[in-house]
């Protein structure tokens, strides 16, 4: 059987809210190392990779590897019924066709359980190599959210260029043009308000703003976000989910025809 308990149930609520518009369905792959998900959006332009480690849960048991096919809209409906302070336990028998979600209020005086029907989903698993990137930028997730939101109101695509001057986001549209530059800045006392730019070589890539904007729905999960860029390769937008794991979004660059 599979059983995973997390005291901070709001993390699961935030995760599903971050993913549900991008990916309608996907497999939760569970094993004794944890829970993972790899899913593409419907247009196959971006990929979401979620990894939650076994030791990040308050309790985790998985006797046999399973792929649980989840409809994220339906999972979201159920998780909306959990309180923000609730402990959430996920449970499934081996080869089950349903996932049980149990919500416990902190005071222990309210316990509810919901069964989510599982789906059978054929999905190809993509091998994502570990690699070095030309530029890695860590910035406040709220700053990333603001930049992509602001630029989305001006244009459809953004040119992201990383140089020793900083990281520049440029777009243009019917209204005109916009450029936002962030510089390496470790002045703020709080580490989560700092901007770190690790540049190996200058790089410039163009991306669809619609997707970058959608990734920012993960903002409530982490105070910082990491952007990784290499020429001709997908951008990686990564949110660390505390000690539990991470969610990474990969978006293919736009290339000249």
């Amino acid at each position: 059987m599979f059983e995973a308990r997390i005291t901070q149930g709001s993390v699961l609520k935030k995760l599903v809210e971050a993913l549900k518009e991008l990916v309608t369905e996907g497999n939760f792959d569970v094993s004794n190392t944890g829970l993972s998900l790899q899913a593409m959006d419907s247009s196959h332009v971006c990929l979401v990779s979620l990894t939650l480690r076994e030791d990040g849960f308050d309790h985790f048991r998985c006797d046999r590897n399973m792929a649980m096919g989840i409809h994220f809209g339906n999972l979201s409906k159920i998780l909306k019924c959990a309180g923000n302070e609730d402990t959430i336990t996920l449970k499934a028998e081996d080869n089950a066709d349903q996932l049980t979600l149990m919500f416990e209020a902190p005071s222990q005086d309210r316990i509810s359980d919901f069964d989510l029907k599982l789906m059978s989903i054929e999905s190809e698993h993509l091998g994502i190599p570990d690699q070095d990137y030309s530029a890695e930028v860590k910035l406040p997730s709220s700053e990333y959210q603001r930049i992509v939101r602001d630029l989305t109101s001006i244009g459809d695509t953004v040119l992201i260029s990383a140089t020793k001057e900083g990281i520049k986001f440029s777009t243009s549209g019917d209204v005109g043009t916009a450029n936002i530059t962030l510089r390496h800045n470790t002045t703020p006392e709080k580490p989560e308000e700092q901007t770190f730019i690790d540049l190996k070589e200058p790089v410039a890539l163009t991306f669809a703003l619609r997707y970058l904007n959608n990734f920012s729905k993960a903002t409530p999960l982490a105070p910082q976000v990491k952007l990784s860029l290499t020429k001709d390769l997908p951008i990686v937008v990564e949110y660390q989910v505390g000690e539990l794991g991470s969610v990474r979004f990969y978006l293919a660059p736009k290339i000249d025809d």
Partner: peptide
Amino acid sequence: QTKQRSISAFFKTS
């Protein structure tokens, strides 16, 4: 003109 490739073109199927 720019075009958009599928994300799966960048990673190997395993």
